[in-house]
Structures are given as C-alpha cells and as structure tokens.
Design a protein around this nucleic acid. Structure first.
Length: 231
DNA sequence: GATTGATCATGG
DNA sequence: CCATGATCAATC
C-alpha cells in the first residue's frame, strides 16, 4: 500500500501549489514510522507530551518553515498546512485550531481583514490516522486536500466570527462557551490555567482572562473532507 | 461516545 | 506573554 514515490525530505519551500501538492501526494500511504525514520526524528511513546509532533514531522517533508510567526506555513504561495487526525472512516477526531483570538484593540476590525479569514483562505489538509488504538508508529498519512472555503463555508465562518467578535468587543468574553458558533468556536488556548491575558470586561474595564483561540468544529472539517472523497 | 475546557512542548 | 504545532481528559 506504500506510495511508489520514494520518501524525501524537503530542503526548501515549494515554489507553487503544484509542487506542494506533489510533495504531499508522495507522503500518502506511508506510516509515521517510515517518515520518522527517514527524517531521523525519534517517535515519542505517545502524543501526550508531544502534541505537535506529527505537524512538525510533516513540515519537514513539505518544506514549511518552522517558527512562531502569525503567518501561513507557506507564506510565499499563500497556503496554510493543517494535519488533521481522522478515524477509519476519514472523519475528524479533533477540532482544528485556527489562530489566537484578539481580545483587545478590536474597534473597527472586520471579517475581511481578520486573522481567521487569512489563515483559512487556502489550506492544505493532510489527514492522519489518529485513533489511539493504533500505535503511533503504525498510523498512516492520508491523501492531501488543497482547499479554499466555498461561498457557503465562508458565510458560515463569517457569521460565527462576527458573533464571537461582537461578544468579545462588548466585554462578554467570559460568557462565551464552545457552544457558540455553528462551525467556528472560541475555546481556551493556553499553556495552563495560570496564563492570563488582557481583555475587555463587562463594564468596559480591563480584565485578565485565559487566552482564547478560534477552532473549527468537527462538523465543518468533516464536511469539507467528505466533499473531497465524494468528488 | 461526543464535547468542552484544560493542557503540553518549543522558540522568540 | 504570544505565537507555532495540536491532543488530553473530565464531564456532559
């Protein structure tokens, strides 16, 4: 079941989408054991303390620049990379982190210039077997999908983003739960419960609260992956 | 079993 | 602290 294309690490970013997709296609079918061996990256016993390990591993093969900049992974060609854990039916096992939510300085922000829209404008989705019943080393990489939101998806995202940002601006961030939003949700995104950041309180005063992140709900990612399989 | 809220590692 | 990469695990 392995791809006939030999594994090779990327030494530079892809020049265009076609090259990126060619690299991603070449990984489909391989196990994490095979990829980690070729990359010289030891496999952790589990992901408990290495939650981003698969993402970092795939970045090496695709030529993404590792770093902590609020940029797309392949900024030169405007593409974001997302690995997504899936079950045996290709359905997402987890929500997908998009970006940190700005909790202050939001007067006049719009969907058009939002970080969420920028990050999701073009995404290379790479499904990876994620069931914990499968040992990490034996999990396989799936077929990649280069995606942009269609009109309906962008409208869904926009509606949720505007609802959530309204609440943030109105000082109601601490009243927001993960149940808000149809396809986009706001949840804590922090190292731990003691990491606090500034936000706007109910009376317009500054408060300290947990940093939040925007996440794609599983119903949304499930649909976009399903579209891929059915077409 | 699915979901929400909490958490882990690393680098600047 | 904030950004990157996400998954864990208590609770519903």
């Amino acid at each position: 079941m392995n791809s006939p294309i030999p594994l090779s690490l990327a030494s530079h970013p892809p020049a265009d989408e076609r090259e990126l997709l060619r690299r991603a296609d070449a990984l489909a079918g391989y196990t994490l054991w095979e990829l980690s061996a070729q990359a010289g990256l030891p496999i952790p016993a589990n992901l408990k303390r290495d939650k981003g390990w698969i993402g970092v591993l795939l970045e090496r093969y695709l030529g993404a620049r590792a770093g902590s900049k609020p940029e797309q992974d392949f900024a030169a060609i405007g593409v974001e990379l997302k690995t997504i854990p899936v079950d045996s039916g290709g359905r997402p096992l987890e929500t997908t982190f998009v970006c940190v939510a700005p909790l202050t300085g939001n007067s006049g922000v719009t969907w058009e210039t939002s970080h969420v829209r920028y990050k999701l404008a073009r995404v290379l989705w790479i499904p990876v077997e994620g069931l914990r019943t499968i040992p990490l080393a034996r999990r396989r990489i799936g077929a990649p999908l280069l995606w942009s939101p269609n009109a309906e998806e962008e409208l869904q995202l926009r509606r949720d983003w505007e609802e959530l940002m309204d609440l943030i601006v109105l000082g109601k961030v601490e009243r927001i739960t993960a149940r808000h939003g149809e396809v986009l949700q706001l949840r804590p995104k922090a190292a731990n419960g003691r990491a606090l950041t500034a936000a706007v309180g109910e009376f317009g005063q500054q408060i300290l609260t947990l940093p939040r992140g925007f996440y794609l709900k599983k119903n949304f990612t499930a649909q976009l992956l399903a579209r891929h399989f059915l077409l």
